[in-house]
Simulated assay, not measured.
Amino acid sequence: MLRRILWTSLALAPLAILVHYLLHPDPNVDFVLSAGALIPLAWLIGEATEHAARHTGPGIGGFLNATFGNAPELIIALFALADGLTEVVRGSLSGSVVGNLLLVLGFSLLFGGRGEIDRQSSFVSLGLVGAAVLCFLIPSIPAFDGDPERSSIARLSIPPSIALLLLYVAVTYVSLRRHRLMHVSSEEAVAGWSMRRSLGVLAAATVATALIAEILVGSLESFAESAGLSDFFIAAVIVAIVGNAAEHGGAVVVAARGQIRLAAEIALSSSAQVAVFLVPAVALLSYLIDPLALSFRPVELAAIGGSAAVTAALLAQGKSSRGRGAALIVLYAAVAAAFFVAGDR
């Protein structure tokens, strides 16, 4: 019954897009339609990822979900850059890393309960996040004083961005090779969708999610202004949650089905991808639009580094539990409160 409802509700995605671009409704209408459309799209990404993982194993399956799930965040960031919203871009990216580590992983553990996770893969992802924080310090520390948008800070962001991208490529290659050696699959022996169909559905759902997320972000800004929220809070919490809708839905659905190992891979791989791939990629691509300085605020750096450290401590034994999930969610609430208090620069 639930699956039938979710399949049917996928019609909300084209409806939301058509209403937005043809009727130009009130932002509140856009918000309701796009928020509703993201729910079945997130489920569909999780469904396709689960089928793909049957062919590749949980490591590569989580990588696929993180890759497709992060596409909306990249598109949102580029749209925001085009509008000159650099603070929104940085806030949404840092909030995305924190959201994946604490909120997505937290709900995955909460719904998945007790189980085993891939400890080695988890610590590789957390190590990448830690390395990213160290690289972010290079342009961020000089930006603590003066104009954080000055061109010298943008230029200073280039070397760490290139270094992080090279690190991402190297670690991803080794990780995928490891998972491939660990998991040997025969196409004839695997039930469910074919790999081609799984990837096709993932791609289509990601494109739709990107369009819907962009509409939702536009309507959220109007709502946030009326609510008196800061741009930083909107970006680091609301926009980040919207951009992570695919990871939230996909990881939780997979975890609820008992595949906590895959769910953890989704959350941790996504956080690492945002930190060492998406952030530097946006920084470099910004030179085609408006150079972006990776001048993160102290509260952002502390939130990312602290989230990685706490997550590492909770997962040190390679075990999952509802208690660990609840702890991560509570910590996310504390970080969100800190973002609210911090306000704009």
Rank of each mutant, 00 (worst) to 15 (best):
M195A: 08
A13F: 01
G306P: 07
W43T: 06
D290P: 09
S230E: 05
E187M: 12
D26G: 03
I289D: 15
A170F: 00
E188Q: 10
D30W: 01
E187S: 11
L284T: 12
S122H: 03
S9M: 06
G99R: 07
T206P: 10
P142H: 02
G59L: 05
I5V: 11
R196V: 07
E47F: 09
A283F: 13
S96H: 13
F296P: 02
V174Q: 12
A275C: 15
D290N: 13
I289H: 14
G69W: 05
T8K: 07
N100C: 14
L64G: 00
L101W: 03
L2K: 09
M195C: 12
M1C: 12
G84W: 14
V129T: 00
S295T: 04
L22V: 12
A80C: 02
L110S: 03
S161G: 08
I212K: 03
E214N: 06
F144D: 04
A333Y: 13
R54I: 05
V19P: 01
G127Q: 03
S161I: 09
H248S: 01
L165S: 07
G318D: 09
T49V: 12
A170H: 03
K319P: 03
R345T: 14
L137H: 05
V252G: 11
T8A: 15
I162R: 05
F31N: 00
V129I: 04
P280A: 15
F339T: 02
V201I: 14
R155V: 13
L137M: 08
V254Q: 02
F233N: 01
L134Y: 06
A132N: 12
H51V: 15
I39F: 06
G106M: 08
A263K: 09
A334K: 11
G200M: 11
I117V: 05
I60T: 10
F277M: 03
M1R: 10
L15F: 08
A337T: 08
A275Q: 11
E50Q: 10
P280L: 13
V89M: 03
Q259S: 08
G323Q: 09
A272K: 02
V279N: 08
A48F: 07
G305D: 04
G127Y: 03
L199A: 15
L81I: 13
T209L: 11
V207Q: 10
G325L: 00
A235I: 03
L6N: 07
G106Q: 05
H51A: 07
F223S: 14
F277G: 00
Y21K: 15
F107N: 07
N65V: 11
G258H: 08
L101M: 09
I304Y: 01
S222T: 10
E247C: 08
L64A: 01
I329A: 11
A53S: 13
F79E: 04
A255V: 13
V217I: 10
G343L: 02
V32F: 00
V276N: 06
Y287V: 14
A163G: 00
A281E: 10
P139E: 01
F339K: 02
A170W: 02
S270N: 06
S161D: 14
A66K: 00
G305N: 05
S307A: 09
V242N: 04
E116S: 15
V201N: 04
A337V: 13
F232G: 01
G99N: 14
P298L: 12
A204P: 06
S96I: 13
P40E: 12
D30R: 00
L23N: 15
E116I: 11
A251K: 02
F63I: 07
S194K: 06
I289F: 15
R3Q: 14
W7K: 15
I76G: 01
G95M: 01
H179Y: 10
